[in-house]
Amino acid sequence: MKWLTSLLTSSIGRKLIMALTGLFLCSFLVIHLIGNLQLLVDDGGVAFNDYAYFMTHFLPIKIVSYGLYAGIILHSIMGIALWLQNRKKKGVGYKGGKAQGSWASKNMGLLGTLILAFIFIHMGDFWFKMKFTDTLKMVSSEALGHDVKDLYKRVSIAFENPLIVIAYVIGQLVLAFHLWHGFASGFVTLGINNKKYTPIIETIGRVFAIVVPVGFVIIPILHYLGISF
């Protein structure tokens, strides 16, 4: 097992952990987005509430969700640790000018910390209330044949508040910058970087960094404006 611990504690190994957890979290974003787009369906929340019930009660998904929490925690702790350590290892910065490289790539620690703060607010508002409190009303679900918690209502109330909508817009902007660097960077870390694949991966990364946050952000905005389809 020594080989494994020495691998995972080395500089490259810690990059590997960041890349694997990061790309895993990217895959989650896609699933989360697809599910959330049901919030835009004009059915009073029936489809979304059924979906929310399914996501919190279906065993395989429950298991994956624990992996997801672990992924978020690992990515955050490791990221913050690396950020602090790298600042120490760099020591003094330059007075004569700024370092080369994209703004996003040089501020991943800051962006990541903001995303973590966003996740806390976001989960506290919905996930926590749904799982651990009785503040959500019950509504009957025809498809499931029993009552489910009305998460849709909670979401609607939240997105009536312009401050919450603005917080979500900022949160997604930060996420976009984080993905702008993070997606392609993860692949470089895995060793996938050459003339053939890099341009494709970079393009996918850039598209991903725009499409996913935009997809998320239209939900609160359209809700606030009262538009659904």
Partner: peptide
């Protein structure tokens, strides 16, 4: 030797 950890900035 105390070098930092690469984060693929590319500078």
């Amino acid at each position: 030797e105390g070098f930092g950890n690469c984060s693929n900035v590319g500078a």
